[in-house]
Design a protein around this nucleic acid. Structure first.
Lengths: 196, 196
DNA sequence: GTCTATAAGATGATAGAC
DNA sequence: GTCTATCATCTTATAGAC
């Protein structure tokens, strides 16, 4: 009988390693050779899985975006109130930093944007759109339910929240401090009136 | 009689062009050849001004940090109240985006951090420290004077503010929209009770 | 201070054998 | 699906002439 989806296939292994390098060093600071050495095959073999580096980049953001959307759906379907869901959202970013000091792939690729193939650029914009839309809905509903308290448009607060978290990852890694992330993110929650 | 400091010397020209490329594409996505073509000399000649790329990187952040500190001093020495000074601070970042969709060099190099020579890494951390210290003082004084209104430690608000602005530049460029920056930054000002 | 010439190594990529 | 071999190009960097 067939096993559950073999997640250790070479393609997945390549994606896993490439994602780590992309989140840590950025799109332009890792090579097929870097991947090859860590996965244990020759760099030429990678082209069988991803003919061009742009194909790898596209697959990378597409998968990241899918997984992130899944996480948002899981949080949204949960039983907690808006502050709890917001805390769970923040925790997604905290976990990213704890995972070897990684940045959000969306944020990292946003920094690399003009150097990326256009299809990858579009995926990055999609990642931002996903997050802003989800956050806007959560903030709006939370305020209507008097669970959150802030001034201004939910859409603006959502943008500021996402940007704050992306920036907090950047700063936390620069400081080499998870506490630095915690301080900035705690304040963000406070600023939308999410008492915890 | 000698002219005022010749700012169009080759070294300065190289720094100017390198800064633009660094803010736009990142440290690893521009080469001595890119600089050479734009400045109109041969790439080998650049090594006379900056023997290794790390020297260029260090000079780049050092100058950026100096200029930024000057701007902070100017704002701090101004006559306005805390909300006005905060708005002027935000405007520094807005102007960066308007200047050809550039990111903050500090934020961009924070994204490139692990690929940077260690001396450059230290300068980047220094940039963050400069900004956090300056913002902390401003926020603290502003709240004591009842010109700003927010909860939590000024140091945490300062971190969140800086991170929000770095992230807002990233997002604005991804969206190709100065309005996107305006929305996020306006909300940030609102969140510290800076009525404008 | 800028040039030509040159180097060693990296990079993304292809062809073709196994 | 992975390998060896090979490629053109790019990248940082040096030596030495002008």
């Amino acid at each position: 009988m067939p096993r559950s989806p073999d997640t250790s296939g070479t393609t997945d292994q390549l994606l896993d390693v490439a994602q780590e390098l992309a989140q840590t060093r950025g799109y332009n600071a890792f090579s097929y050779r870097d991947l090859a050495e860590r996965v244990g095959i020759r760099s030429a073999s990678i082209h069988h899985h991803f003919p061009a580096k742009g194909d790898l980049g596209r697959a990378l953001v597409a998968r990241y975006r899918d997984r992130f959307s899944d996480a948002l759906r899981r949080i949204g379907a949960g039983t907690g109130d808006a502050p709890a869901k917001l805390a769970a959202y923040v925790d997604l970013f905290r976990a990213t930093y704890e995972h070897g000091g990684r940045l959000c792939l969306g944020g990292m690729f946003a920094a690399d944007l003009p150097t990326l193939p256009t299809e990858v650029q579009e995926q990055v914009r999609g990642f931002y759109a996903d997050n802003e839309a989800w956050l806007t809905r959560l903030l709006d509903a939370g305020r209507r339910a008097s669970q959150l308290h802030f001034e201004g448009a939910p859409r603006d607060a959502a943008a500021a929240l996402l940007d704050g978290l992306e920036g907090a990852l950047l700063a936390a890694r620069a400081h080499g401090s998870s506490a630095r992330f915690a301080r900035a993110s705690r304040w963000l929650l406070l600023s939308v009136g999410a008492r915890s």
